[in-house]
């Protein structure tokens, strides 16, 4: 464990807590893409298949349970909670996220470190996570301005993978033979997708005005 990875995990944890807090306290999911939340639930379900077979550490197992629990409960809130579901804008959240799942699955069948069930699904989860934010960013552009909590959620979600990139650089230089191109490239692409959001988020914060992405 290194400071970059710990910072990344804490930032990731903060992002899901901000979203859960928003949905649970104000009972609203306005501006939040259910498609992105469903993709993240799939990401965690396919990445943590080893949660009961490979014990790494209490921290690792605890965090996996938190991410699995939070992502599935957010999906449940947005789909089934009688009050929250009313604030879900399904007419705007129209990104065909199944067009993301199939290509990621096919790509994972081709590009992976070992062609086994678990390894292919693990690789699939990395590719899917890289693009999972797209429905949310599209929804953001459609609904124009967004509330602060949703903006903070997206910012933290993007920042966590940026911390992971520093973690991979650190591990590359400190651990011999630590080379994993697949998460590195997927993680870099994921962080780049947040590029313009970070740009507008920073400027709205600097000029202290409402966050608005260009149409």
């Amino acid at each position: 464990m290194n400071i970059f990875r710990f910072a990344g995990d804490m930032t990731h944890l903060a992002s899901v807590l901000v979203l859960l807090l928003k949905i649970h306290t104000i009972k609203s999911c306005a501006g939040v893409s259910l498609k992105t939340q469903e993709l993240y639930a799939i990401v965690f379900a396919t990445r943590y298949l080893d949660i009961f077979t490979d014990f790494i550490s209490l921290y690792n197992t605890f965090m996996k349970l938190v991410f699995l629990g939070s992502s599935f409960s957010i999906v449940w809130y947005m789909r089934s909670h009688k009050i929250v579901r009313r604030s879900y804008d399904k007419d705007q959240d129209t990104f065909r996220h199944y067009f993301l799942i199939v290509p990621c699955l096919l790509l994972a069948m081709i590009i992976n470190e070992k062609f086994t069930f678990r390894e292919v699904l693990w690789t699939f989860s990395l590719f899917l996570e890289a693009v999972a934010i797209l429905p949310q960013l599209v929804l953001l552009q459609r609904t124009r301005n967004i509330d602060n909590l949703t903006g903070q959620y997206i910012f933290l979600l993007g920042a966590y993978r940026a911390f992971y990139i520093f973690n991979w650089i650190y591990r590359y230089f400190t651990e011999p033979h630590y080379v994993h191109w697949i998460p590195w490239i997927a993680g870099l692409l994921q962080t780049l997708l947040y590029g313009d959001f970070f740009y507008y988020y920073f400027h709205s914060w600097k000029n202290n005005k409402k966050l608005q992405l260009p149409a």
Binding site: H12, D50, D54, I56, N60, M63, E113, K114, E119, H177
Partner: peptide
């Protein structure tokens, strides 16, 4: 890299 190595990252 040892492909079978444990996935210690989240």
């Amino acid at each position: 890299a040892a492909a079978g190595e444990l996935k210690d990252e989240l």
